[in-house]
Design a protein around this nucleic acid. Structure first.
Lengths: 131, 131, 131, 131
DNA sequence: GTGGTCTAGACCACC
DNA sequence: GTGGTCTAGACCACG
């Protein structure tokens, strides 16, 4: 599967599912008209509560990323790819802005922040290579 | 006052108070042995419940940033400045790491993330100049 | 339940809960990965306010004795047993020291204090047998 | 003076004053019909708030340990010595009982508690000799 | 059902 | 005036 859940994360589990489905669609791992895994199957694979998967799917439906195909399952819509690609960036921009605001409050200069970002990127890169 | 609350933030109000008191101490806006604003006063100024302020102060006490002076108020400890300066960076690093992790999950390349950070820094800088 | 609250105690209610949860863990009455009673349940059983229980649990979380399992409850950590066993003695030592200090201030000789302790131990032993 | 205040103690300052006056009387350091220091004098000597001293004296008056002598000051009553000696023991017994109760709750055996008391007595004795 | 947060208002001890 | 504790009750996110 293309999804990994961290139960100890700060993000809600259902939100992790939502995001990662979107990322998978944006990356082309699931294409329009293809079916996502059933609620039961995904819940079993991820070892989480079916209610949680159902909730994630419900939200994706309300965002018109998924649609129900009667008697068959949930399919990716044709408009999904464009939406997911857009959101991918927007979600990150919002978080970046929040961090910058926090830096401003704590009187950390933009240059210092930039250097922190570089440092952490380097660290994560090393870790990512190992993993 | 040196504190601003964002009710739409992802961070709990009490946590915003905790962080910003730390930032104020790190920046020298409140010095050791000085009193922080009283629970009631700060609550009134920020238009929040005294219990919420009390909770923030309680946490700062448990971190030995503040101590109670009975019948007088809460004073900044001598060790507070060093602690807060250290944390100032650490708190931000944590949030930067979280954003990078998010980017990794959504398969956004490090270079792309770096460019987003630059863009947003530039935007905030303009806003900051206006304000 | 394994907890008893004394409303006439010098200790705050939330502190009594904190201590007794620690004692229960040290004694093996609650084991790692098991859930402590829910906030609402314990509050009902002890006839105290849920906020008071929540405050006690919050402190135990900050000491890494408990962790939240989202939507499920609060679980005892693996490191909790060792911590609680250590503290069990330390908490008592602190109180013993306080009493000795009080005795010193009131110029009661150590021998006299020791004899008081013996007397009271004997009295409590008798009561304990009856109960 | 025969009084020492610990501002960081768990005991209220006014209570420390009350207790230590009583101890001084029980020990014969101040005798019946003698005057205690004036509120202003004692407050200055101990570097505490005069209100705090006044409150302590008020309580001692209500317990008939002290009486006002018009235009002169506060004098120790004739019944004071007996009262103070009695209380000295009773106060300690209550605290000893509380500690024993706590030990019972945490399933610490009476023998173990006795040994803790001995240890701490020894430690305090050493410290007391140095000081 | 679970915990987390916040508000509102009370009472206490202390200075 | 100060902080500390407790109660009561609301709303939210999560499973």
């Amino acid at each position: 599967m293309f999804i990994r859940i961290q139960t100890d994360s700060e993000l809600a589990i259902y939100d992790q599912v939502v995001r990662q489905i979107k990322y998978a669609i944006a990356a082309g791992a699931i294409r329009p008209d293809e079916l996502v895994p059933s609620v039961r199957e995904l819940a079993r694979d991820l070892a989480i509560n079916p209610n949680t998967v159902a909730r994630a799917y419900r939200q994706l439906q309300s965002e018109k990323i998924l649609v129900t195909v009667r008697g068959t399952g949930l399919a990716v819509t044709s408009q999904a790819v464009a939406k997911c690609k857009k959101e991918r960036i927007a979600l990150l921009q919002k978080r970046v802005r929040d961090v910058i605001e926090e830096a401003r409050l704590s009187k950390i200069a933009p240059e210092e922040l930039a250097s922190i970002v570089e440092q952490e990127l380097a660290r994560m890169a090393v870790k990512g290579t190992q993993a």
